[in-house]
C-alpha cells in the first residue's frame, strides 16, 4: 500500500506577464512562481502548505490538482501522475480552489451540488443521498441554506458549499486552497473540525494551504513552508518549532503613550542593544514590547530593559517569556519575502 498520498518532486513553474508602461508600451516579464518544490503528504494526515501571499501555494495546488502543467518536476496523487494520468487524479481528489466563486449564482446550493454530482456520474437516488449527506455534513442544512440561491449565501455558507462539493464523490484526498479565508471564527472552526474528523475518522488525506498559523498549529500533522517558490521548511509542528529553538520571545507591557511609540522603539533598541523587537500599542497608554532573544540571554535582557525603562521614567507592568510559536518560525523563515 502507498504510504504517500501525494508526492511532489522538483516542481518548477514560470509565468509570462506583461507590464504596461504608457499607452502603447508593454514589457514582457518572466515570473518564477515555483523554483523546485518537493514534499510528500502521508495518507490519512492533514498537511498544511504555508506561505505568504505570492509564495507559490496556489500554483502548487493547481499543479497537484492537474489544472496546471509544471515546466519541470513530477507530482503524483495516489500514485497517478498529475500530467499523464490527469483524469484518474481527478477521480480521487476533492478540491476547493476558492471559497467565493465556482458556482452558478442563480442556482440554489442543493441544485449546484446536484449539477456537479451529475457531472461526476452520480445519478438518481445515489445522487440525492450524497447531496443530502454532504449538505448535512457541512452544516448547510442546519443553517437552512440548502434551498437558498448561491448569490444569497454569506461567505461562510459559500465556503461550506465549496467543501460539500469537494466531498460529493467521497474522494480519499481533499485539496483545499485557503478553505477558511475571510470566514468568521465560528464558520472557520466548523470547517477545521470537519477536516480533522474526515482525516481521523474517515482516513481521508487533507492538504490545505493557509497563512493562518493558528489554524495550522491546530489541525496539521505536517506542514511545509513555501517562500518565494521554494520549500524552506518541512516537518511536524514540533519539529518546525525546534527550528526556532534558539529563539525566545520576551514580552513586556510598559507604560508608553501612543504618541512616543515611534521614537521609543529606536531609544529602546539603543538602550538594550537588541536587533529584533517590536512595539504594539495597547489601550490606556500602554504598549506591548516584544524582544526576540537567545535562550539564556533572557534574564540579562529583562534586567537591562527594566533598569533602562525605570531610569527613563517608563513603568513596566508585566514581563513574560515564552517559547517560539509557529508564527515566529514562519516569520523567521519568510522574512524579507515580497
Amino acid at each position: 500500500m502507498l504510504v504517500n498520498a501525494i508526492e511532489a518532486k522538483g516542481l518548477v513553474k514560470n509565468y509570462v506577464t506583461w507590464d504596461r508602461r504608457g499607452f502603447f508600451k508593454r514589457k514582457k516579464r518572466i515570473v518564477k512562481a515555483l523554483k523546485g518544490v518537493s514534499f510528500n503528504v502521508i495518507r490519512g494526515e492533514v498537511f498544511g502548505l504555508l506561505g505568504p501571499n505570492g509564495a507559490g501555494k496556489t500554483t502548487t495546488v493547481k499543479i497537484i490538482t492537474t489544472l496546471l502543467l509544471p515546466d519541470e518536476g513530477k507530482a503524483t496523487v495516489m500514485g497517478y501522475d498529475v500530467v499523464s494520468e490527469a483524469e484518474k487524479v481527478r477521480e480521487v481528489i476533492g478540491v476547493t480552489l476558492s471559497v467565493e466563486k465556482g458556482f452558478f449564482w442563480k442556482l440554489t446550493g442543493r441544485e449546484n451540488l446536484k449539477y456537479f454530482g451529475m457531472l461526476r456520474g452520480l445519478k438518481g437516488r445515489e445522487l440525492d443521498r450524497r447531496v443530502e449527506e454532504v449538505l448535512e455534513l457541512v452544516g448547510l442544512k442546519e443553517l437552512g441554506a440548502s434551498d437558498k440561491l448561491y448569490e444569497e449565501y454569506s461567505l461562510g455558507m459559500k465556503a461550506r458549499l465549496a467543501l460539500a462539493r469537494a466531498l460529493l464523490h467521497d474522494p480519499p484526498i481533499l485539496i483545499l486552497d485557503e478553505p477558511t479565508i475571510g470566514l468568521d471564527p465560528m464558520s472557520a472552526r466548523t470547517i477545521r473540525e470537519l477536516l480533522v474528523k474526515l482525516a481521523r475518522e474517515e482516513d481521508k488525506t487533507v492538504l490545505i494551504t493557509t497563512h493562518n498559523m493558528f489554524e495550522a498549529e491546530l489541525i496539521c500533522d505536517h506542514v511545509a513552508i513555501i517562500n518565494d517558490g521554494r520549500i524552506v521548511a518541512y516537518g511536524t509542528i514540533g519539529e518546525l518549532k525546534r527550528r526556532a529553538a534558539d529563539r525566545l520571545a520576551v514580552e513586556m507591557i510598559i507604560a508608553a503613550p501612543h504618541t512616543i511609540l515611534g521614537d521609543l522603539e529606536a531609544r529602546i533598541s539603543k538602550l538594550i542593544g537588541i536587533r529584533e523587537l517590536g512595539l504594539e500599542p495597547l489601550e490606556e497608554g500602554r504598549a506591548r514590547l516584544r524582544i526576540v532573544v537567545k535562550p539564556g540571554e533572557e534574564e540579562v535582557i529583562i534586567a537591562k530593559s527594566i533598569e533602562a525603562f525605570y531610569s527613563n521614567g517608563i513603568k513596566v507592568y508585566q514581563v513574560r517569556v515564552h517559547e517560539p510559536t509557529l508564527e515566529d518560525v514562519f516569520i523567521l523563515l519568510t522574512k524579507g519575502s515580497k
Binding site: 477521480e91 480552489l97 476558492s98 466563486k101 465556482g102 458556482f103 456537479f116
Partner: peptide
C-alpha cells in the same frame, strides 16, 4: 471569470 472552467475540468468535464 467565475472559476467555472476549473470546476468543470476537475470533474473531468
Amino acid at each position: 471569470s467565475q472559476g467555472l472552467v476549473e470546476e468543470h475540468l476537475l470533474t473531468n468535464t
